[in-house]
Design a protein around this nucleic acid. Sequence first.
DNA 1: GTCATAAATGTTATGTTATAACATCTATTC
DNA 2: GAATAGATGTTATAACATAACATTTATGAC
Lengths: 183, 183
Amino acid sequence: MLCYNIYSGDTIALPMRFFMPRASAVSADFPQRGHDHSACGSHALLEAEAVCRSRQVKLTDLRRKVLETIWEDHAPMGAYDILAKLNAEGERNAPMAVYRALDFLIENGLVHRLSSLNAYIGCRHPGRSHSGQFLICSQCNIVAEITSEAVSKTVARAATSRGFKPSGEIVEVMGLCPHCRGN
Amino acid sequence: MLCYNIYSGDTIALPMRFFMPRASAVSADFPQRGHDHSACGSHALLEAEAVCRSRQVKLTDLRRKVLETIWEDHAPMGAYDILAKLNAEGERNAPMAVYRALDFLIENGLVHRLSSLNAYIGCRHPGRSHSGQFLICSQCNIVAEITSEAVSKTVARAATSRGFKPSGEIVEVMGLCPHCRGN
DNA sequence: GTCATAAATGTTATGTTATAACATCTATTC
DNA sequence: GAATAGATGTTATAACATAACATTTATGAC
C-alpha cells in the first residue's frame, strides 16, 4: 500500500503486513515544514475518541472543539488563545469553559501543559499515561514531545537516590529545532 | 576544627586541611527539620556578595532584601509573597520592584524560578551557571536543588539525538521528600 | 415516561502572576 | 558639575487561572 508520512512528507510503498497507521503517521519528532497539518488534527481526534471510549469518559462537543483548536498548530497555545478561536465565530464561551475542558483533556492524557510557557499542546501519544518531555524551539515555537526512557529513568534514579519519592516530573528543553538551527 | 553541618545537623571534627565551608554548609540535598535556617540565609548572602563582586554587578539594597526574604524559607516563595514580606513593615514597594530584583537575581544565578509553581527559591550553588534540577515535595513544599550530571547529560543527549540544539532546560520532579515519605 | 441523581456547562466575579511605559532618582566617569 | 548609565518609583494594565453558585443535560432506576 502507499503510505503518506505526514511528518517527513514522504510517500512510501509499505507492504501490507507492516501497516501500522499510528507509527507511520507520527514518526519524526519534529514535523516537516508545510506538512498537511489537518491530518495531524484528524488523527489526534480519532485517537481521542478511542481513548475516551475505552476510559468511559465523554468527549463532549466543547471538549472536542477545544482539542481541535489545540491541534490547529504544532506550537503550543495559551488558554485565552483557544478561547479567542472558539469565540471567533460569535460564540460566547467564558474562560472557565476552556479551563475545564483543558483539565479534562489533560487528565485523560490528550493534552499537555507546558509550564514554562503557560500553554497547552496536543499529546502525541495519548492513552499511555506519561508526563511528557518537551523540546521547545525558541525561534519558531514548535514543540516536539519525546518519550525518552533514558531521561525518565535517569531523573527517577537521581530523585530516589536522594531519598525522594517521585510522583511526577516536568522536563522542558528550550533551544533550536532542526529547522531553525540552520538559519 | 569543629564544624556544624546546618543541613544534617551533625557537629563533626574536621581536619583543617579539609576545611571547605561551602561543601560543609551545603551538603545534603534536603535540609534537616529544625536546622538553624538563619545560617542558610547568611551563608547565601555572603556568597551573593562574592558573586556580584566578581561579576561586577551591584547587589543593591532592594536586591539584597529580596534575596534575604527568599532565603527566609526553604520552600519556594511567590513574587507577591516576597512583596508582602518586604512591605510588612510599612514600605510601599510595587510588584515591579520585586520582579526587577528577581530578574537580576536570576540572571546572576542567585535565585531560580520554579515554573511549575510560579515561585522563586534561593540557589544553592550560585556562581556556577546552571539550570537547576528540582525535587519538590508536594506535602511540605520544601524544594531540593540537585545537580546531577547524569540528568543533564541524558537530557542533552536525548535532545541532540533528535536534531535539537538545547540552550536551557527545566527539570522539576514532584513527589515526597525524605521527611514526608515516612508519614 | 418521570423522577432522582450525577455530570457538564453557564455565569459572574475575582484572584494571581507578570509586564509595559514613562518619570525620577542615584552613582559613576570624565 | 555635566553627561550618562543604571536603578528605582509610579501607574496602569495584560495575561493566566479559579471560586462559587445557577442552570442544563445525560443517565439509570423505577
